[in-house]
Simulated scan of single mutants.
Amino acid sequence: MNRRTAPVDTLMGTLFEEITGEVRSAVRAVLADTDPRLALAARRAVSSGLDVLLAVPVKGHFVAAAQSAGGPVATQRARATDDLAAIVEAGRHAQGVEATPVSAQQARVAAIGAVGAALRIIDSRLGGEIDVRRDEAVTWSTAAALAVLAAVTSERP
């Protein structure tokens, strides 16, 4: 970061953190008070997070653009992904999803992968890479996240 871009990078990072903080809060709220079935809880969480980004469209556009630009928000993006993964991981345990016990590392990898899969679809929708309706983005993001969770936490290699 050079002296010319430092204030802009700092502003972008702060704004990114504020917006993704709103998303994380919305997801936490939904998971704290939702149906115990994982698929329904996941769909509601994805929908709630997307609603934050669509309520003020410039927020969603900013998040998608900032993430695709990389640099200035890389640290905040990693932190937001880790926070969302921790929420997913805690939600799995609270919902009693552990039919087959998994290691803490396996649960963490599953949560990070699930969040990454869902976010990629949402980012693509917000960034205009894919032209899908809101409900399609929620359905596909949820399906991708649940598939990753199932694949990583199964007993298959």
Rank of each mutant, 00 (worst) to 15 (best):
A118K: 03
V109Y: 09
I112S: 00
D82S: 14
A29R: 10
E98D: 14
R79G: 04
A86P: 01
R24L: 12
T75W: 11
Q106D: 11
V58R: 06
R37A: 14
T34M: 06
R43H: 11
A69I: 02
D51G: 13
G128L: 04
G71M: 13
A45D: 03
L50W: 10
P57T: 08
P101T: 12
A114D: 02
E17T: 13
L126I: 13
A39V: 11
I87T: 15
G71Y: 11
V102L: 00
T100D: 07
V23R: 01
S68W: 11
A64K: 08
L40Y: 00
E18C: 08
R44S: 13
I121N: 04
Q67W: 10
D33C: 01
A66N: 09
A74W: 08
I19R: 00
H93V: 14
H61M: 12
H61N: 08
A41Q: 05
V115E: 02
G127H: 05
Q105A: 11
R108T: 12
R133Q: 13
R134W: 05
L119S: 15
S124E: 10
A85M: 07
A29W: 00
R77L: 11
Q76W: 00
Q105H: 09
G96E: 04
E22T: 00
P72D: 09
R92D: 03
L40V: 12
D123I: 08
G96K: 03
Q76K: 06
T34I: 04
V56W: 06
V23T: 12
L126M: 07
I122D: 03
Q105K: 06
S124R: 12
S103M: 02
L126V: 14
R44Y: 08
R120M: 15
V132L: 08
A29L: 08
L53E: 04
T100P: 02
A41R: 04
I121A: 06
L84S: 08
E89M: 12
A80N: 01
A74K: 14
L38W: 15
V109P: 01
L53C: 05
S25N: 14
D82G: 08
G70F: 09
S124Q: 10
G60N: 05
